[in-house]
């Protein structure tokens, strides 16, 4: 998993809970990297899961909420670092549709080792689209946060429902209905 996810996660934790919480999570961690992350590195994805689970234990907040919040937070980072992707699309649906065949293709060029989820999209009407999220990382809630933040970024109001197509969450269907 890309290092930026880890560095941004701990930025957010420090932001919301203070560095004490960051230190607590790292100290509890049994991971190989011992909490030393750099945005240009790559780390095992299990480590983020461990940190999130531990944050849940420490904060008492539910994991889906934590992942959703992290998704929304990371969106801000993406806008800051990769603004051209967002500027290329004029609305949320166009942007979401471009993830799979454009953004991820470009990401692969910069980070050949990156393991990216797939986002198959299907435009039902002008106001409704379906996104199928497929990933062994099972981070549907994280993805939902990213989607919701995308709608907000384009100043569009929409209801996003989430349905597990596989029980383990490796395949998730999002229905996005604009209001």
């Amino acid at each position: 998993m890309l290092g930026v996810v880890f560095t941004e996660f701990f930025e957010m934790v420090e932001d919301k809970f203070g560095y004490d919480m960051v230190d607590k999570l790292i100290e509890q961690s049994t991971s190989e990297s011992k909490g030393i992350y750099t945005a240009v590195g790559t780390y095992h994805h299990g480590e983020i899961v461990e940190h999130v689970v531990n944050l849940h234990k420490e904060s008492g907040l539910e994991i889906p909420l934590l992942l959703n919040t992290f998704g929304r937070y990371l969106h801000g980072t993406f806008v800051k670092n990769y603004s051209s992707f967002f500027e290329n699309a004029t609305n949320a649906f166009d942007f979401l549709e471009s993830i799979e065949n454009y953004i991820h293709v470009e990401v692969k060029k910069l980070y050949p080792d990156a393991e990216l989820p797939s986002f198959d999209s299907e435009r039902i009407t002008d106001n409704q689209m379906v996104l199928y999220y497929t990933s062994a990382r099972r981070l549907g809630d994280f993805a939902k946060g990213l989607i919701e933040q995308t709608m907000e970024y384009y100043e569009e109001t929409a209801e996003v429902t989430m349905e597990n197509l596989e029980a383990d969450g490796s395949k998730v269907k999002f229905v996005i209905t604009k209001k």
Binding site: Y19, V22, D23, I26, E27, K34, G35, I36, Y37, T38, A39, V40, G41
Partner: peptide
């Protein structure tokens, strides 16, 4: 103290990668 150590280690790691 731990934070400083971590950040120095992260910097070194990043420098090595770069």
């Amino acid at each position: 103290q731990r934070r400083l150590e971590r950040e120095r280690a992260a910097r070194k790691q990043a420098e090595a990668i770069l």
